[in-house]
Design a protein around this nucleic acid. Sequence first.
DNA 1: TGGCGCCTGGTACGGCTGCACTAGACGAGT
DNA 2: ACTCGTCTAGTGCAGCCGTACCAGGCGCCA
Lengths: 224, 224
Amino acid sequence: MTGSGTQDGPPPDTVRVLVVDDHQMFAASLAQALQSESDLLVVGQGTSISEARALMASTTPDVVLLDHRLPDGDGVGAIAELHGIRPSAKIVVLTATTSDRLLVAAMEAGAAGFIAKTQRLDDVIDGVRAAAQGESVVSAKLLTRLLPRLRRQGGGSRAELTEREREILDLLARGLSNADIAQHLTISVHTVRNHVANLSAKLGAHSKLEALSIAVREGLVGGG
Amino acid sequence: MTGSGTQDGPPPDTVRVLVVDDHQMFAASLAQALQSESDLLVVGQGTSISEARALMASTTPDVVLLDHRLPDGDGVGAIAELHGIRPSAKIVVLTATTSDRLLVAAMEAGAAGFIAKTQRLDDVIDGVRAAAQGESVVSAKLLTRLLPRLRRQGGGSRAELTEREREILDLLARGLSNADIAQHLTISVHTVRNHVANLSAKLGAHSKLEALSIAVREGLVGGG
DNA sequence: TGGCGCCTGGTACGGCTGCACTAGACGAGT
DNA sequence: ACTCGTCTAGTGCAGCCGTACCAGGCGCCA
């Protein structure tokens, strides 16, 4: 690399990395892998948004690798907040499910990059370096999928579900029927049916089953 | 094992580990993490059953960390075969979804252990060491869940889906209706209905939705 | 204060699904 | 040859679901 270091500490171009993933196994492994790169320094790792918040301030990272599903909330939803804590830090979203919707949401929220967990470790390493230098990190494959969508609708993913709809989608994902959900929420079956119809429309689905299918694929509901 | 080494290479109690996971990112990271343990030697990593097959013979591992979902088949289903290639190797199954059914199936197939990806990296490291010494690696939490099931039914998970049922479950997971599936497979809707009824019964579900829900939870159908 | 979005509840109807039960064809194992 | 499991196909019916459309209450915001 540059090699212009005169100190015996960390060279000035060392990238400070923070790794946040709900699976400690993955976070720790990835941290170890990144650590073995001479120009990267893993300054912290966490498994939740609250930990990320704390580490964001205390470890002063240059790049944050942020999983989108975290126990205490949505990683993408926390981007703006984390960005506020340390504006100079570049946030790269890591996701298990590759979803156009998620990608758009992440980029809109101010993410510097978006890497699917189906990509290679080298992609992460390169991505961290690129993000540190202010580049956007999105694979060409994802970009080609993203462009037509951005063109089609001015960049907004207006298919955002309301809190109630999310709640019902979650119950759907547990295999509950409309009647079950109605009982569970102590509301009418008609109301449930309306919510299901609305969220199905938002997801572009034509049935509960398809809605659930899409929700699973896009990471809206939990495997855990 | 070879054992009687007089070389000054790796100490005789070094555990040779093979890591197999469809996500190269995870496999490589985990390999890196294990590598940093002085008593562990990662001799190979792969992302598919076919790679595992080849590496099993060429790298002579003591312990194999095997993901259950792989692009060319079911990891648990491949345990017996891999075991046949190198009987002395201990196979530890790694899964994203913690399912009783899967756990039972893995242990029955001859797995030496079962570790959920929700566990910590240290659990994997300890698990590898334990497996290498012939111990069974199953977390206490999982064991307590497993015991009543083993007692209830003589150890058999008779809820194994047929190939056709799997196929239909997979189409269900894509949000297709019975009619869609019938058309897709060029069979009658009645047949589809029967298959759905049968696989639902096997899964203990009372509706397609619940069946899909269970299937997702147990990792029977793909997020990818 | 009016508009807007969300949650709620309702009606009506066609269609699909769940369930139970039957039954022929075909391959594998004994 | 026989049995067994699987895939296939069918019937009949009760019940749930999808869709469309309406409407009141509530909180938020200009």
